[in-house]
Amino acid sequence: MRDFYGVTLDSPLMLGTAQYPSPAVMEAAFRASGASVATVSLRRETGGGQAFWQMIKGLGVHVLPNTAGCYSAREAITTARMAREVFETNWIKLEVIGHADTLQPDPFGTLEAAEALCAEGFEVFPYMTEDQVLAQRLVDAGCRVLMPWGAPIGSGLGLNNRYGLRTLRAAFPEIPMVVDAGIGLPSHAGDAMEMGFDAVLLNTAVAQAGDPVMMAEAFGLAARAGALARRADPMAPRDMAVPSTPVIGKAWL
């Protein structure tokens, strides 16, 4: 598996830590899924989330703090610096939101913040649309991981623009990529992995499921299945039917 800023992950599943019925359910979900990374939002917990942060550190997985809910590069940079102190990691999932209703990322703010954060030694995981030009600019800024969205955050719509994701994947074969946001079902996660993405990141689909722990297990299996399938080099679809057992020589009765 590809490494993320020098870290090789045991599982291609990254899970968010918000919206679970309780921290106990969250912990059980992480265990059931085998997820290797926990994302955590700092924005609304400013200055008082220590008990919850300790629980996240206690999950025993890599912590990827994020700048969720930031609407400007400045806000995101401030949040990232705080996250580095709290979680003692250079990893930061950079999220600069550009639109309140769709929560789509602001490409300009994201690039501005990525440039500043990379210069400060952060290892930036930018949340982005599947735009190739933006991807190139982010790589130029120093990002060594990209996180294109599948669909708007929390929408559960899956991979909205398969063409865009496929071409993005092909354009940057050396850059580890995570499909982040919009994943609603394990099949979406498996799909992304089969397309050659290196990991998937989701939160709502597990946290808000009727049984988050069971859904977490399903996502863990699906992400792993997709990764295995990709490595196994799947057959190409073709128009002509090909029998899997020879027909020649069969008795004509």
Binding site: R44, G47, G48, G49, Q50, F52
Partner: peptide
Amino acid sequence: QIESARRGPVTAR
């Protein structure tokens, strides 16, 4: 319902 032990008045948000 916010994962925070910060006291203080209700926020504008």
